[in-house]
Design a binder for these strands. Structure first.
Length: 271
DNA sequence: CCCGATTCCTGTAGGC
DNA sequence: TGCCTACAGGAATCGG
């Protein structure tokens, strides 16, 4: 499931093929994604040249002559580059046909992904306007987290997964970061010291950066834009390891549900 | 504002 | 082996 490292891996993989390419056509085979794919996309995008591929949170922003295709991979989406014609397979919902002979193809079995076309500043789009800071950016640090946590009674895990607080920390990395920081994920966000938030902010950055360096996490089916899996799964300490031994203390990893999401932690190492 | 529950969807895993 | 059900999750949205 694509979290920030997987989206960044995809961005880096796509960028060299897309920058400078002209869009010849858009083929939409399935409009029913998270929101309906707008008909204006197939009209407005062809004829434009792609001049930017940025990431904000888990959104990819494909800029073309002042317009932007806002893309989200949802939880099962992937974007790949193919050379020349290739028959579309199941769940291949959308193609951009490029004038360099390549195709950018969006595949998304669960259709939680999104393709949105805007001619305005994408950062002002309702979906992006109220997002919190990037975890790898300069605004994000322990003091910021601690400030925002004051008075909050929801669990710290739910807190760091809230995109209005900080973006890009999904279910896997939330469990991993809290393990690294030694914090019980069930603890109320507002009852954690400033000092521990310093540590938490630091490990959030570290775990995301390390995963990007490994090409992301492939649990089941994530592949980068070249079809290669990511290798970070081998470094997961708690996620998906319910009942297995904690790598630090040997006691069994526990699984609970927080905010309707499975949560993994070591009750001994995390308090 | 804050917070938890519900919702979208399909592939896969587990039970029988 | 095959059928059926439960579960997984990003994040918008709703209800309290």
């Amino acid at each position: 499931m694509p979290e920030l490292p997987e989206v960044e891996t995809t961005r880096r993989g796509l960028e060299p093929w897309l920058l400078g390419a002209g869009v010849k056509a858009v083929a939409v085979r399935e409009r029913r994604l998270r929101w309906p794919v707008p008909a204006s996309l197939a009209r407005d995008l062809p004829g434009r040249t792609i001049d930017n591929l940025a990431r904000r949170a888990k959104y990819l922003l494909l800029g073309a002559d002042g317009g932007t295709l806002i893309m989200h991979l949802g939880m099962s989406g992937s974007l790949r580059i193919y050379e020349g014609f290739r028959p579309p397979g199941k769940h291949d919902h959308l193609d951009l046909l490029l004038d360099n002979g390549r195709i950018m193809r969006f595949n998304d079995p669960r259709r939680f992904g999104a393709m949105i076309w805007t001619r305005r500043d994408p950062l002002r789009h309702a979906l992006l306007a109220h997002l919190g800071p990037e975890p790898l950016g300069t605004e994000f640090d322990g003091d910021y987290l601690w400030q925002r946590s004051q008075g909050r009674r929801a669990s710290v895990k739910t807190f760091i997964m809230d995109g209005r607080i900080v973006v890009g920390v999904g279910n896997i990395y939330a469990s991993e970061a809290l393990y690294q920081a030694g914090i019980d994920p069930r603890r109320a966000a507002g009852r954690i010291s400033r000092q521990r938030y310093q540590r938490l902010a630091q490990v959030i950055r570290e775990v995301l950066q390390r995963s990007i360096d490994q090409g992301g996490t492939t649990l089941r089916d994530f592949t980068g834009s070249d079809g290669q899996p990511g290798y970070f799964a081998q470094q997961l300490n708690v996620y998906g390891r319910s009942g297995e031994a904690c790598r630090a203390c040997g006691r069994p990893i526990r699984q609970v549900v927080l905010g309707q999401r499975s949560t993994f932690f070591c009750p001994h190492c995390q308090r």
